[in-house]
Amino acid sequence: MWEVIRRWFDPAELGSVGETPDYRFSLANERTFLAWLRTGLALVGGGLAAAQFLPTLPMSHLREVIAVALLLLGAAVAIRAVDHWARTERAIRLGEELPASRFPAILALAVGGGALLLVVAVLMRAVGGR
């Protein structure tokens, strides 16, 4: 695991494999990384907003649980972004197939599932509360 992390911070190692591609491919890969990083930052921002703007929910500490879950999900998306960028860059340089990933599907299911749970919480509040 530490070896993988060390590799992210060692651009010379990445630049030593295969051939330097058309710079436009590297730029496109970098923009994809940035789009994922912003996705992670949006989740972090969502967690920070949940912590301070959500009203009290029917379960104790549910607001804090939601906030921490969003914050950790945002960090995971950011880490996965740089890992996927490095693996894609390596594949482009070596002329291999781009790395396949289940991550977008998993993230979509997590966000969708979380939204459904929140709908249930809001409905419980509307029916049971007051």
Binding site: L37, G40, L41, A78, V82
Partner: peptide, 11 residues
């Protein structure tokens, strides 16, 4: 990326 992770942990 590291900066983003630190922001999340501070959060």
């Amino acid at each position: 990326t590291a900066g983003t992770v630190v922001l999340a942990l501070l959060g």
